[in-house]
C-alpha cells in the first residue's frame, strides 16, 4: 500500500495530468470546501476525493487517510461543539454545559471542511513525482530552484520521518517502554521523550542530504538545467475549467 505521501506509480488519467494542474485542482477543491456553507457540498467533495483516489488506484491509502482524519475530526468536533454558545439549545449537561444547533452545525462544517480540504492535497502528492513537482515549480512557475527543492524535499521527508518515528517507537518498546499501552494519555506522555532521537536523526539525515546535494553540484543548477518538459494538454485545460466550476459551485451551492 505504501506509506503516507509515498509516490504511488501508475498511468491513470490523474497520473498523466500536468503536475501544476494536479496541485491547482487540489487547491481549488480546498478553496471550494472553505467557501461553501453547505455540509452536503462538503460530503460531495469528500466523495469526489474517494472517486479520484479509486481512479488513480490508491483507494486503500485514501480510505486509510480518511479513517485517520475522521478520528481526528471527531475529537475536534467533540471539543468545538461545547464552545459555541449561540443558537437554540439542543440539550444541556451539568455545570452550564450545553449544545446548540449552531454549535453542531459549525463543528460539523469544520470537520467536513478539514477532511475535504486535507485529502486532495495528500492524494495529489501521492500521484506526483517530487522531481516533476520541483521541475514545474521552477520551469513553469519560475520559482528559484533552491526554494522548489526545499519544498519538495520537505514533502519527501515526511514519510521518511514517519518511518523513522515508527522505528524509534519499536526500539523503545523493545526496551520496555509501554507504547503498547491502551491508555492514550499515557501513550502521549511516553511519546514526548522520543522527540530527541527523532530530532537528532532528522538533523543528521538533512545534513547528509545537503552535503550530498552540494557535492553533486546543487549550486550549479539553473532554471534551464531541467530537460523534461511538461506541456498543457486538452485534459489539463478541462481539469482547470472543472476546478473553477467546482469553486463556483461551492460558492453558490443552493442547498
Amino acid at each position: 500500500m505504501g506509506g503516507f505521501l509515498d509516490y504511488s506509480p501508475g498511468n491513470s488519467f490523474l497520473h498523466r495530468l500536468n503536475p501544476i494542474v494536479k496541485i491547482f485542482l487540489s487547491l481549488m477543491i480546498c478553496v471550494s470546501c472553505f467557501i461553501t456553507d453547505s455540509p452536503f457540498f462538503c460530503i460531495a467533495i469528500i466523495f469526489l476525493n474517494i472517486v479520484m483516489a479509486a481512479s488513480a488506484g490508491i483507494l486503500p491509502r485514501a480510505l486509510a487517510m480518511l479513517r485517520t482524519l475522521i478520528k481526528f475530526c471527531t475529537f475536534l468536533f467533540l471539543i468545538q461543539v461545547f464552545f459555541i454558545r449561540d443558537g437554540t439549545v439542543l440539550f444541556s449537561l451539568p455545570f452550564d454545559i450545553y449544545v446548540t444547533d449552531k454549535g453542531v452545525m459549525f463543528s460539523l462544517m469544520m470537520a467536513f471542511r478539514l477532511v475535504g480540504a486535507t485529502l486532495p492535497l495528500a492524494l495529489m502528492l501521492s500521484i506526483t513525482k517530487m522531481n516533476d513537482l520541483s521541475n514545474v515549480l521552477v520551469g513553469t512557475l519560475g520559482m528559484p530552484y533552491k526554494y522548489a527543492f526545499s519544498l519538495t524535499t520537505a514533502i519527501r521527508f515526511i514519510p521518511v520521518f514517519t518511518a523513522e518515528m515508527a522505528g524509534i517507537m519499536e526500539a523503545q518498546t523493545a526496551r520496555g517502554v509501554a507504547f503498547d499501552t491502551k491508555n492514550i494519555f499515557r501513550k502521549i506522555g511516553l511519546i514526548f521523550p522520543l522527540c530527541v532521537p527523532l530530532l537528532i536523526t532528522s538533523v543528521r539525515k538533512i545534513e547528509g542530504a545537503a552535503i550530498s546535494a552540494e557535492l553533486r553540484g546543487f549550486n550549479c543548477r539553473k532554471r534551464d538545467s531541467g530537460y523534461k518538459s511538461y506541456p498543457f494538454r486538452a485534459a489539463d485545460i478541462g481539469i482547470i475549467l472543472f476546478a473553477f466550476a467546482l469553486a463556483a459551485a461551492g460558492a453558490f451551492s443552493p442547498f
Binding site: 523513522e164 522505528g167 526500539a171 523503545q172 523493545a174 521523550p193 522520543l194 530527541v196 537528532i200
Partner: peptide, 11 residues
C-alpha cells in the same frame, strides 16, 4: 534487543 541503528534507542 540491540538494533542495528543505536540512534533509535538513545533518547
Amino acid at each position: 534487543f540491540l538494533f542495528q541503528n543505536p540512534d533509535r534507542q538513545i533518547c
